[in-house]
C-alpha cells in the first residue's frame, strides 16, 4: 500500500470537518469539527514525517495538539459563558455582530 493513502484519508477528514463547521449550528459540535480538521492535518504531518524520514513533522503535530488543547479550553469556556447569558448553544443566535 502506498503511504499516500494516509494523505487521502487526511484530506477527506479535513473536508468533512470543514463542511461540518459550515453546516452544524451547535457551537460544541462546531468545535468538534474544528478538532477533526486539526486531527486531519496532524495525520498529514505524521505521514509527511514518515515519507521524509524526519521527525520535524511529528514535532509540529505535537505542537498542534498542545495548541488545540489550549484552544479547546478557552473555546469551551466561551461557549459555557455564552450559554449562561443567552441560554443557547446555537451559533446562529449570536448574530449581533452585523450592520
Amino acid at each position: 500500500m502506498n503511504p499516500v493513502n494516509y494523505l487521502y484519508l487526511a484530506a477527506l477528514l479535513f473536508t468533512i470537518g470543514a463542511s461540518g463547521v459550515l453546516i452544524r449550528r451547535n457551537a460544541i459540535v462546531l468545535f468538534m469539527c474544528v478538532e477533526l480538521m486539526l486531527n486531519a492535518s496532524n495525520l498529514a504531518l505524521v505521514t509527511f514525517s514518515r515519507l521524509h524520514d524526519n521527525l520535524d513533522g511529528q514535532i509540529l503535530a505535537f505542537f498542534t495538539m498542545v495548541v488545540a488543547a489550549a484552544e479547546v479550553v478557552v473555546g469551551l469556556a466561551i461557549i459555557v459563558s455564552i450559554f449562561r447569558t443567552r441560554h443557547s448553544a446555537s451559533v446562529d443566535d449570536s448574530n449581533l455582530m452585523k450592520l
Binding site: L22, I23, R25, V91, D92, S94, N95, M97, K98
Partner: peptide, 9 residues
C-alpha cells in the same frame, strides 16, 4: 454581513 458566524466561515 449578516452576523452569522457560519456565513463568515
Amino acid at each position: 454581513q449578516n452576523g452569522y458566524v457560519r456565513s463568515y466561515a
